[in-house]
Nucleic acid binder design. Structure first.
Length: 272
DNA sequence: ATGATGTCCTGGGCGC
DNA sequence: TGCGCCCAGGACATCA
């Protein structure tokens, strides 16, 4: 579910617990995508120093030189509650209580998400972090970088945008929206793209993702921000989920690439 | 290496 | 109202 804008919206909503002390952590479900390290449930009297994002990963830096890394997967969400207003729900897998009586709750119906914990130095050496490409909103991400990463591959650009090893943060919804914005066909192979087209894609990436963040992300089924409010960028989708509708008089089409839906407008996004 | 497919899960929506 | 089927925002493994 959650792509970069939803993860970013989540992190911004977590500001109230920065500087708080963790009192305890309750693990209701020992295994999500991976087994949750047991020693995390022993965590106590540790300050949350910082909450960062890397691609779609959420990183909590703690005062004991340890870090929690969390991925929301497809259906995961983090919610923040006042302790006295909280009612546990189905799929609340992980509950962190702070000294301010905030509860941070990780709910994930499909359990494709995960929570990991360990020494900060070790956490940044995890392969799921090391292999990430440049962040989609990173200052270093530019057309030249994209070109250098894709100039040898026939993989279609839609699939390339989903590859976290190349650009970290884009998911299936925003990939379609970005390519529509850049007026580039999702079917074009990486090696067919010029530097100028790569530049266009990166510019569109930043435009779309930033705009989505401004709108609090997109809510289709699962996603809500930490206070439970829904994002509304979905009302700005130009092509995603819009099969058969017209844009500038041209029809939007849905195709399947690598088992994932792609929406685009063949008349406006030509394969050169 | 590549690309197509399967897998981990639950739940919502739709057709019947 | 119920049932079965298909689909879903992620990421990875496996197979030919």
């Amino acid at each position: 579910m959650p792509e970069l804008p939803e993860v970013e919206t989540t992190i911004r909503g977590l500001k109230p617990i920065i500087g708080s002390i963790i009192i305890n952590i309750k693990i209701n479900t020992p295994k999500l995508r991976f087994i949750i390290p047991k020693k995390m449930s022993l965590l106590t009297k540790v300050e949350i120093l910082e909450i960062k994002r890397r691609g779609k990963f959420i990183i909590f830096l703690l005062s004991n030189n340890h870090a929690i890394i969390l991925h929301l997967g497809m259906s995961g969400r983090l919610r923040l509650f006042e302790a006295n207003k909280f009612e546990q729900k189905k799929h609340d897998h992980f509950i962190l209580r702070t000294n301010q009586d905030h509860l941070l709750v990780f709910n994930d119906a499909r359990r494709f998400g995960f929570v990991d914990y360990g020494k900060t130095t070790n956490m940044f050496e995890k392969k799921y972090i090391l292999r990430l490409g440049l962040d989609a909103l990173g200052i270093n991400l530019n057309g030249k970088y994209l070109l250098s990463r894709i100039s040898n591959t026939a993989v279609p650009i839609k699939q390339i945008l989903l590859d976290q090893k190349i650009i970290a943060g884009i998911g299936n919804i925003y990939a379609s929206e970005i390519l529509f914005n850049a007026q580039i066909s999702p079917l074009v192979g990486g090696r067919e793209l010029s530097l100028n087209e790569c530049k266009k894609i990166i510019i569109s990436t930043k435009i779309i993702l930033k705009k989505a963040i401004k709108h609090g992300g997109s809510t289709l089924r699962d996603y809500v921000s930490v206070d439970g409010t829904v994002g509304n960028f979905q009302s700005n989708f130009q092509v995603y989920g819009q099969e058969g509708k017209k844009i500038f008089g041209k029809t939007i089409k849905k195709i399947v690439q690598y088992g994932r839906s792609t929406y685009y407008c063949p008349d406006l996004q030509k394969i050169k």
